[in-house]
Design a protein around this nucleic acid. Sequence first.
RNA 1: CGCGGAGUAGAGCAAUCCGGUAGCUCGUCGGGCUCAUAACCCGGAGGUUGUAGGUUCAAAUCCUAUCUCCGCAA
Length: 310
Amino acid sequence: MRIAFMGTPDFSVPCLRALAASKHEVVGVFCQPDKPVGRKQILTPPPVKEEALIHGYRVFQPTTLKNGAGVALLREIEPDLVIVVAYGKILPPDFLSFPKYGCVNVHASLLPRYRGASPIHRAVLNGDMETGVTTMQLDEGMDTGDILLVKKVPIGPDETTEDLFDVLSAVGAEAMMETIGQIEAGTLHPVAQDHDRATAVGLLTKELGEVDWTKPMQTIHNQVRGLYSWPGAYTFLGGSVLKLHRTARTAVGTSKAPGTVVKARGQLLVACGDGLCLELKEVQLSGKKRMDAAAFLNGNQIAEGDVLGS
RNA sequence: CGCGGAGUAGAGCAAUCCGGUAGCUCGUCGGGCUCAUAACCCGGAGGUUGUAGGUUCAAAUCCUAUCUCCGCAA
């Protein structure tokens, strides 16, 4: 089958690799234009582009697919099927209907839950015990198409978004290959989503990372692991930003006010809103490197009784 | 030249403004104590202070250049 692939970030790469290793012909790869990245604003190609170039695929980085621009490109490569994995742009109707088998999307959630831009983060943030990958037939809406195939994945209590990212991108590749196989075999049974149960999630913002210590310990723990490693959770210590990279739940109770450092010897415990302590295991003060709690405590930069959050 | 912080023992920090041969906590090694401990006590090892120049009787500290790391912004 002639397949065009559309994707941009790391998450999409395993899918492209799987296609490359398959019998199918990758006739073109679409991704977002190169962007300046990092402190020095170096123009960097997206991960999918780098992977595509390794295989010698034709790469397209159009700024828009609207007004026939996308279809014009499809006409050049004549794909039977288009696979879309975290591409980053909405596909117009004429584009969706161009390939014989349409466009199939790999989405990192159990649809109709978490439609939109940040499904993995949201599942962890909400403390879900389970998430997964859904493949669906793309339609004009945002992740509203008929469901083709679902694979579930459990979420561990301390698992981070980054951990899940790796798992789900691998599972996504499996789901994709299985879906393609069934398309060829004609054995798929698309199921409409239950739109009443749908939830939509937007892009993440930095502000989501600020910890509110009056919240329950579990909620803050979810926030830390859900936003790891980007954009990250943070609080304030003496006016400086203190990033929280890793935390652990404890059963230690306290009567101290939320945000108070309850223990700063051996381990670092902070009081949360529900009277339980959250252990900070790895932190980073602005301008400093990230370090584990033991190293942080050695420098005497924090003491019992200090209050985080201001 | 977007803004800013930092490079000192294995780790995290202090001493830098007001130059005078480097200190603290942890780890490590040896010994001791205790029913016991991420407990405590005693002792030791470990640093040409990112690099290159300069000023000086003397530089971690002042001057110049350079490399690296990090926070913000994008």
